[in-house]
Simulated scan of single mutants.
Amino acid sequence: MDEPSENKAPTLWQMLHSVGAAALGVQSGKNRARDFTHGKPSHFILLGILFTVIFGLTLYGIVNLVLYFAGV
């Protein structure tokens, strides 16, 4: 699906996929090697922080929704 990108920086979609896979602990060795070789750390740090904030807000929203329907 993705074209071979031996010497190219990862695309935004590839970086999002890498951050999500790393968060779940299922990052492949090939993608990890690509990220460390061609990716910029600042991009992954920013995406990781953004992912964490969105994940936290999602959990907060789900808990509030459950508590609302539980009548608490």
Rank of each mutant, 00 (worst) to 15 (best):
Q14M: 02
G39L: 04
V19Y: 09
G29C: 05
F69Y: 15
L67W: 08
L46V: 14
P4G: 02
N31I: 05
N64W: 04
N7R: 06
E6V: 14
Q14D: 08
F51V: 01
G20W: 06
H43M: 15
F55H: 10
I45S: 03
S18E: 01
A9V: 14
Y60P: 02
A23G: 05
A33V: 02
T52S: 15
L67G: 00
V19C: 06
I49N: 02
T58G: 15
Y68S: 08
T58A: 12
S18N: 00
F36N: 11
G25R: 05
P10F: 09
A9D: 10
L57N: 11
Y68R: 11
A9I: 13
G48E: 04
A9T: 12
G25Y: 07
F44N: 08
G25Q: 03
L12F: 15
F44M: 14
N64C: 05
Q27T: 09
G48P: 08
S42K: 07
I54K: 11
D35H: 03
A22I: 04
G25I: 03
Y68F: 15
I62E: 03
Q14R: 07
A23W: 04
P41Q: 11
T58W: 11
G39K: 03
F69K: 13
Q27P: 00
T37N: 09
S18G: 10
E3K: 06
G71R: 01
K8I: 10
G56T: 14
A21V: 00
V26Y: 06
L65H: 09
G25L: 07
S42P: 00
L47P: 13
L57M: 13
A22Y: 00
L50T: 15
Y60E: 10
V66G: 03
G71D: 02
D2Q: 09
G39M: 03
E6W: 13
S28N: 01
V53D: 06
K8G: 01
F55C: 07
P41L: 07
P41N: 10
L50H: 03
W13Y: 09
A23C: 08
V19H: 05
P10Q: 06
Q14S: 02
F55P: 00
N31Q: 12
L24Q: 08
E6M: 06
L16S: 01
Y68A: 14
L47S: 08
G61Q: 11
S5W: 01
I54G: 00
D35M: 15
G61I: 11
W13G: 02
G29V: 03
G71M: 06
D2V: 12
G48I: 10
G20N: 08
K30Y: 08
T52L: 13
A9P: 11
P10A: 04
M1L: 12
A9K: 12
H38P: 00
P4K: 09
S28C: 03
F44T: 09
G39Q: 01
F36S: 07
D35V: 10
K30T: 14
A22G: 00
P4E: 13
H17L: 08
R32G: 08
I45K: 05
H17S: 02
L16I: 00
K30H: 07
V72Q: 06
Y68W: 13
L46K: 06
